[in-house]
Amino acid sequence: MTMDHAHGRLIVWFSLLVGLLFELMPVPDIVLPFRPDWLLLILIYWSMALPHRYNILTAFVMGTLLDVLLGAHLGIRSLAYSLAIYLIVLNFQRLRTYSFLQQTVLVGIVLCIYHLIVFWLQFLLEHATFSAELLWPTVSSMILWRWVFWVLRRIRRRYKVR
Results as ranks from 00 to 15, higher is better:
Y45P: 00
H115W: 12
N55P: 01
L121T: 06
S47A: 14
C112N: 11
T104I: 09
Y81T: 06
Y86M: 07
F119P: 08
R96E: 13
I76P: 09
Y98D: 15
L106C: 09
V89M: 07
L66D: 05
V89C: 12
L111A: 10
L121E: 10
L125Q: 14
Q93E: 15
I42L: 10
I109A: 12
W38P: 03
Q102W: 12
H115S: 13
Y98L: 15
L90A: 13
C112H: 07
L116F: 14
I42C: 03
G63M: 03
Q122R: 14
M62V: 00
R96P: 04
D67G: 01
F60V: 04
F119K: 05
A72I: 03
L69C: 01
L121R: 08
Y54M: 00
L116D: 08
I56F: 02
I85K: 01
R94H: 08
G75N: 09
L39C: 03
Q103P: 05
L39Y: 05
L50Q: 07
H115L: 11
G108V: 10
I56H: 02
Q103F: 04
I109D: 09
W38L: 05
L66S: 11
G75S: 10
G71D: 03
Y54R: 01
Y86P: 04
W38Y: 10
I117M: 07
V105E: 02
F119D: 08
A80W: 06
Q102R: 12
T64G: 15
L116C: 11
H52I: 05
F92N: 14
L111E: 06
Y114C: 03
G63L: 01
Q122L: 13
A49Y: 10
L95C: 06
L70T: 13
I113K: 09
S82P: 08
L90G: 11
L57D: 06
F123S: 11
V89L: 05
Y81R: 07
R94D: 07
S78L: 05
H115K: 13
R94S: 04
W38V: 03
Y114A: 02
L69E: 04
L87M: 14
L83C: 12
L69Q: 06
L65F: 13
L125M: 15
L66M: 12
I44N: 01
H115I: 08
Q93M: 14
R53G: 05
W38N: 04
L101R: 09
W120N: 11
A49K: 11
L87E: 08
M48P: 04
T104M: 13
H115F: 12
G71C: 04
I56A: 02
Y45L: 03
F92H: 15
